[in-house]
């Protein structure tokens, strides 16, 4: 998927154990890339997209991904759309989901304090090595070396979508035109795949995405938004560091 993953384990454990945990996360993410990348002609997703693989023959993971994309399409009034660019491209869900699975596997392997950052989308658990919460900065949309919010979390996910990286490559699926109005959307909540999809959908909505995001707070998804003209908005329960 052409993204870089940073992993930090906060535990005081023998070096070989920590290395083993990180290796297992990397193996899983490489497996996901091989099976779900739309850039690989022989991936399961590509074969399914071309009609060479029937739904009933697809893996349980692929069927889960397709179901989740359909649910999110409904939840976002169609603004999260795995078919937005034409052929099936569930990458917008797969990234967050694969990190969720990786983090769950870390927990199952006894790691209670960790974060995984996949291309700016982060899932974390437990404590920073200093015993406090993980402090997560939200990148300033114009100044790459600055942050515009600092969050403090023990357990949760933070996903950011923005137009500052891909320029006009985020489209409003309703109009087929590039999304405009919002420069950066960050969603914080329990599940990284949902947070990521919500951030992408709100960005595609443009300014009306602010009102849409406000309603997601009731389900535990808080948000922080920067508009194209530099206004900043955040929900009341955004876990901002003090």
């Amino acid at each position: 998927m052409g993204t870089t993953v940073s992993i930090e384990l906060g535990e005081d454990r023998p070096d070989f154990e920590l290395r083993g945990l990180i290796t297992s996360v990397c193996d899983w993410l490489h497996e996901v890339d091989a099976r779900f990348s739309t850039y690989k002609a022989d991936s399961e997703v590509s074969r399914f997209g071309r009609g060479e693989l029937r739904l009933e023959d697809a893996s349980a993971d692929l069927r889960h991904v397709l179901d989740a994309c359909a649910d999110l399409w409904r939840d976002t009034d169609g603004y999260f759309d795995a078919y937005a660019s034409g052929p099936l491209d569930p990458s917008g869900y797969v990234k967050g989901w694969s990190v969720e699975v990786a983090a769950a596997r870390l927990l199952a392997a006894g790691s209670h304090d960790h974060y995984i950052n996949a291309g700016g989308d982060i899932r974390m658990r437990g404590n920073h090595p200093d015993g406090g919460p993980w402090r997560v900065g939200i990148r300033h949309p114009w100044e790459a070396d600055k942050v515009s919010w600092v969050l403090a979390l023990h357990d949760g996910a933070v996903a950011t979508s923005g137009t500052y990286e891909r320029g006009d490559h985020i489209f409003n699926p309703r109009t087929g035109r590039p999304a405009q109005g919002l420069r950066s959307v960050t969603v914080v909540g329990p599940d990284l795949s949902v947070a990521d999809a919500y951030a992408t959908a709100a960005l595609a909505m443009g300014e009306s995405g602010i009102a849409w995001l406000a309603k997601r707070a009731a389900d535990g998804y808080d948000s922080a938004v920067v508009t194209d003209d530099g206004r900043a908005f955040s929900s009341a329960n955004l876990p901002a560091a003090v």
């Binding site: 940073s6 930090e8 974060y115 950052n117 700016g120 989308d121 982060i122 974390m124 920073h128 993980w134 402090r135 997560v136 900065g137 939200i138 990148r139 300033h140 100044e143 070396d145 600055k146 942050v147 515009s148 919010w149 600092v150 933070v158 996903a159 950011t160 923005g162 990286e165 950066s184 960050t186 920067v226 530099g230 206004r231 900043a232």
Partner: peptide
């Protein structure tokens, strides 16, 4: 909109 040089563990962007 803030522009901080903050002490953080990770950056979301």
């Amino acid at each position: 909109l803030q522009a901080q040089n903050a002490d953080v563990s990770a950056v979301s962007g």
